[in-house]
């Protein structure tokens, strides 16, 4: 059954590889690229939210750090894109390591507040610095190749997804994280170090987020503090994860696709009502918490492998 799930994932991935061969419309390919990006941001958010129970309201910080490090290295130091984005990911990981030590000892709501505040602090810092261009943002060298960016984004997100799938659904690491999520004291008695596990999950969530931020920066060629470090990145990832089904990896992918499709359609036809979008986003999250506690995935049969609910 597990193997069937893996082959399912591989099949979807293979189909996604073929998209540029079928879709020649540049605008549409951009839409697909952004969809893949949001899948990545939702899945990385889910590692922490779903597997450890910690909601990271500062997820945008990792995305923004990756974007800015990549931009700074490319524009100011003349680096190539790949090493710059890799360093962007490493910087995001380092950020998680440093931020994780004090914050992951906090309980749920306090962690959410602390990470949110930290992300705001970074955004303000970037606004004030010269090297980042402050409020004016940064312009990157333009590479006009929609196909290239689609594949880079899909490559990064795909590798991330399958690495997560292996680590969280196959290797002991995922079960250990779930144990910490379910009962931290109980997990400690079994020889697990909860703080260490949570920090590992935090770094695991941050590194690909940073790389995705780097790809985003090079792809859109212009970044500013609002587009990369704003609340929307974290909020939207949260909605996608909750709506799709937390702690499942597959759920966030489904959630990301559905929410992103809605967003795209909304922008295309109702962009005059911009303010409505956030209201609807808020409504969706409130409704999913009440009506779909296990997300869209929870409505489907066979949701929790191996566990029959007799309760």
């Amino acid at each position: 059954m597990k193997d069937r799930r893996l082959s399912g994932h591989l099949l979807v991935f293979a189909a996604m590889l073929l998209i540029p061969a079928v879709v020649h419309d540049t605008f549409l390919l951009r839409v697909f690229t952004e969809a893949v990006m949001w899948i990545g941001l939702a899945v990385t958010f889910d590692v922490l939210a779903g597997y450890t129970g910690y909601l990271n309201f500062g997820h945008s910080a990792f995305f923004g750090i990756g974007a800015y490090i990549t931009a700074i290295l490319m524009v100011r130091a003349g680096w190539h894109f790949a090493p710059a984005a890799a360093l962007g990911g490493a910087a995001a990981g380092l950020g998680a390591l440093i931020a994780g030590f004090p914050t992951l000892r906090l309980r749920g709501a306090y962690f959410a507040i602390a990470t949110w505040a930290l992300a705001r602090a970074i955004q303000q810092g970037v606004l004030m610095m010269d090297i980042t261009g402050g409020p004016d943002g940064m312009r990157l060298p333009a590479l006009l190749s929609p196909g290239f960016f689609y594949y880079i984004m899909l490559g990064v997100v795909g590798v991330t997804f399958f690495a997560y799938w292996f680590l969280l659904e196959r290797a002991p690491f995922g079960l250990k994280l779930k144990a910490v999520r379910e009962d931290e004291q109980g997990a400690e008695a079994l020889g697990l170090n909860p703080t260490k596990l949570k920090i590992q999950a935090f770094v695991l969530s941050a590194v690909p987020t940073g790389i995705i931020g780097g790809v985003f920066a090079y792809w859109v060629t212009f970044i500013d503090p609002a587009s990369t470090l704003g609340d929307l990145v974290s909020d939207q990832a949260l909605v996608m994860v909750v709506f799709g089904g937390m702690g499942t990896l597959t759920g966030p992918v489904i959630g990301a696709v559905l929410i992103f499709t809605f967003k795209t359609v909304f922008w295309a036809y109702l962009s005059d009502y911009e303010v409505l979008y956030l209201i609807i986003l808020g409504g969706v999250i409130a409704a999913s918490v009440v009506f779909l506690p296990d997300g869209v995935l929870g409505v489907l049969p066979q949701r929790r492998k191996g566990v029959e609910d007799h309760a």
Binding site: P172, L175, D183, Q185, G186, A187, L190, G191, G306
Partner: peptide
């Protein structure tokens, strides 16, 4: 624990597997 601490969302088997990792790190 006096107030028992199962991992409620996981199966009985998974509960025990998690404890078994201490001496048997391979899944």
């Amino acid at each position: 624990f006096q107030v028992v601490k199962p991992f409620p969302g996981l199966s009985v088997l998974e509960n025990i597997i998690i404890a078994s990792f201490l001496r048997h790190p391979k899944r």
